[in-house]
């Protein structure tokens, strides 16, 4: 099986590679269109800021490649947000795989933004959540979130309910960091590789 991690300018993906190493999966870290198109599984990770990441994807044409992929694609954190239609973070038009807009958490007394730390997810409806216990804890770091919508396959509550995971056709996405979410995160990655 050929797994590709999409290389772009969104932060450090070292921990994603280590997570794959831990479960014994091999992968290619590349931005080459042909390598991405011929992969069995595509992971689209990221940490960073939406507009900078999107402009890089546009420059390299990956903004057209990713939505046209037919194999399972898994976007995490900023990767998930870039798969949505639009992000309030610097008014960024994104790839529009999920027709939903990413919004900043509203300022709320006593609740800090970013939402940082371990929180439970619920309302599973995805192959990626197979074998997870109810209300499993995963690690989040984000200030923007997609609301609960028709593509939501796991939710989380912080300030308001939001989409912890999205799914549509061959596209899967998680707002949290599977790669550092303990055994739960590892299970989700294994589930994705098993699809």
């Amino acid at each position: 099986m050929k797994t590709v991690i999409v290389k772009y300018n969104a932060g450090n993906v070292q921990s994603v590679m280590y997570a794959l190493d831990r479960i014994g999966a091999t992968y290619l870290y590349t931005d080459d269109e042909n390598e991405i198109r011929t992969a069995d599984k595509v992971i689209f990770p990221g940490v960073g800021e939406a507009s900078t990441a999107m402009s890089y994807l546009r420059k390299t044409g990956l903004d057209k490649v990713i939505p046209s992929l037919k194999q399972p694609v898994f976007g995490t954190c900023i990767g998930m947000q870039l798969m949505c239609r639009y992000s309030e973070e610097n008014n960024t038009e994104c790839m529009g795989i999920f027709d939903v807009d990413v919004k900043r958490f509203p300022a709320t007394p006593g609740l800090k933004v970013p939402h940082m730390g371990w929180n439970n997810i619920y309302g599973y409806n995805s192959a990626l959540t197979d074998q997870l216990s109810d209300n499993a804890y995963v690690y989040f770091v984000h200030s923007y979130a997609a609301p609960v919508c028709e593509f939501t396959v796991a939710s989380c509550d912080y300030i308001h309910p939001f989409s912890a995971m999205l799914q549509k056709d061959n596209f899967y996405a998680a707002q949290f960091h599977c790669e550092i979410s303990g055994n739960v995160g590892q299970q989700i990655i294994e589930n994705f590789l098993k699809i």
Partner: peptide, 8 residues
């Protein structure tokens, strides 16, 4: 450490 542990 990064290779071994799966928490931040």
């Amino acid at each position: 450490v990064a290779h071994t542990i799966n928490i931040p």
